[in-house]
Amino acid sequence: MEINLEEQFQEKIDQEIKIEPRDWMPEKYRKTLLRQISQHAHSEIVGMLPEGNWITRAPNLRRKVALLAKVQDEAGHGLYLYSAAETLGMSRDEMLAELHSGKAKYSSIFNYPTLTWADMGAIGWLVDGAAIMNQVPLCRTSYGPYARAMVRVCKEESFHQRQGYEIMLTLSKGTAEQKALAQDALNRWWWPSIMMFGPNDDKSPNSAQSMKWKIKRFSNDELRQKFVDVTVSQAEILGLTIPDKDLKWNEARGHYDFGTINWDEFNEVVAGNGPCNKQRLKARVDAWEKGTWVREAAIAFAEKRAKRNNNSTEAA
């Protein structure tokens, strides 16, 4: 019986029929999605912190409203994704508990510090750019609620990348000092950005199954290559240099070759030893704990009001 169900499930996937929450699905499909979507949601929420750091110090009002709107979008993206994950049978509070205990991961890029205003430019350009590369194919992922959430996210994300690139453009056309700020930000964010696509394909054991289930449509290395290919000319327009001496066009492959990624650094950051891991997690845990009384008061108020409404209907 079980085998039969799995075959039917795979047939649906092969025919591009979306899976919806109450449909039968293999337990491993459910678990894989739950892990991926909740990690994705956590990344959006933790991802608000590095940029939130600069809202009050934005150089002018135009930059400030844009950054504020971007960070608000990220909160929204986190919420779309948490609701998609909840349809797989885990409560919001359980997911948050896993984030706060360190059991659940989030994108390791957010464990790097934002040292200057130029980092707001580099994050929008590179980090959001890499995220878009990952997320566009996810709009066609096989699980309906995840795909629908990603359609919303992608619609909003392109403003994020454009506002970041505009910041980089302004700085790189500015004074020598401003241009140096932009170059410094590119130097620090480049490698972590291309790490965002995850381990190389031969080191990514779960990828094959995810591709078969059409959760993923492209492999980590394919997406990373696409990102490098489009980003090189964007850096040229800015007049900035990508910090990789091995970066060069390969005519035969029709792609850019690039240097070896420092996976030891990646693994260290994933393991919790990046520059800001403790700070980021503490900020989330503090927000949760300090918000406890608000959540409780809202419930108490709602209950009191419901009771009062009931009493008044009875009296009438």
């Binding site: 919420l79 909003e156 809202a298």
Partner: peptide
């Protein structure tokens, strides 16, 4: 369009405004 958590219907409408109608 999706779902969200709120203590009561009034908060649900306010949150829906922020989460689903920013544009």
């Amino acid at each position: 369009v999706g779902s969200l958590h709120a203590a009561d219907h009034q908060m649900a409408i306010e949150n829906a405004r922020d989460v689903y109608t920013r544009r």
